[in-house]
């Protein structure tokens, strides 16, 4: 069934609210199976909704916007967490032990950097594959 963009947005918000409610219910009851199931079901429904929109909602322009937004988000996140990590490690001492938080931030930044490098190499190779 095809939907117009406005209708899809409303249905999407309802699905998102249901997904959040499911996750919250799972957390509240302490059932570890419910939050992941609610998340996966919600993500699947959102994907179906996106595919059922009759009007064009994704094109080269929106993809460019997404690319720029993703890159900027990565840069800002990396920069902000590096600054936070440096501040935490500076003020850490007896009574103020932030080392665990710093390790977590460092692990996240290393993972992000590694993923960025890996996806950049993969896309570079993938996009070059078709050229002579």
């Amino acid at each position: 069934m095809l939907m117009k963009s406005g209708h899809a947005t409303i249905v999407g918000i309802i699905v998102l609210a249901g997904m959040v409610a499911g996750i919250m219910y799972g957390v509240k009851t302490g059932n570890a199976a419910i939050p992941p199931a609610a998340f996966l079901a919600g993500a699947f429904l959102l994907l179906l909704i996106k595919r059922s929109v009759s009007t064009v909602i994704e094109d080269e322009f929106t993809r460019l916007v997404e690319q720029k937004a993703a890159t900027m988000t990565l840069n800002v996140t990396s920069f902000a967490f590096t600054v936070i990590g440096l501040i935490l490690i500076t003020i850490s001492g007896p009574g103020n032990d932030y080392y665990m938080a710093v390790y977590a931030i460092a692990a996240m930044l290393i993972t992000l950097s590694a993923l960025y490098a890996a996806t950049s190499i993969w896309y570079s190779r993938h996009l070059r594959a078709g050229s002579p």
Binding site: T55, V56, I57, E58, D59, E60, F61, T62, L64
Partner: peptide
């Protein structure tokens, strides 16, 4: 936008010369 299979945002950006199409 409908005839070209793109979003209206793309047409606006092209007309305002903020975006060069493929």
């Amino acid at each position: 936008a409908e005839k070209l299979g793109v979003t209206r945002h793309a047409i606006i950006a092209i007309e305002n010369e903020h975006y060069d199409p493929s």
